[in-house]
Design a protein around this nucleic acid. Structure first.
Length: 108
DNA sequence: ACGGTGACCACTT
DNA sequence: TAAGTGGCCACCG
């Protein structure tokens, strides 16, 4: 698969997210070199919804858990995040700015 | 083979 | 200030 690189990078980035931190689809997309292809990131995670990838640490720009319905249980994603010390309210990560982890800044 | 769709984001009315 | 629309690229029916 030629898009393996895209997947791989998403995979790598998500795996590098520290505990208690989250990133956004847009940030990852930008890191991949296609700032406009944030949809692909979500799509990639959808296909890579393996347990090996902590996709629960990836949220949208507003911090909303938009992909929670793809985790099987809507509460699972929230539980996982809360378990990492994050505060979730109304399907949204509180203090997102505080726990935001930017791959472009942290990874290079 | 083709069109619709998607875990989104940013710019333009 | 809020709502609408375009763009991105791969998968599924």
């Amino acid at each position: 698969m030629k898009d393996n690189q895209f997947f791989k990078k998403v995979y790598q980035v998500v795996l590098q997210i520290p505990i208690g931190k989250v990133t956004t689809y847009g940030a990852i997309a930008k890191f991949l070199g296609s700032p406009q292809s944030s949809r692909m990131v979500g799509w990639a995670l959808n296909k890579l919804n393996c347990i090996d990838i902590p996709a629960h640490r990836v949220v949208n720009r507003q911090g909303l858990l938009t992909g929670k319905y793809h985790f099987g249980s809507t509460s699972l994603m929230q539980q996982l995040l809360e378990n990492e010390g994050l505060l979730i309210k109304d399907n949204q990560v509180q203090f997102l700015k505080n726990v935001f982890w930017d791959p472009n800044k942290e990874l290079n």
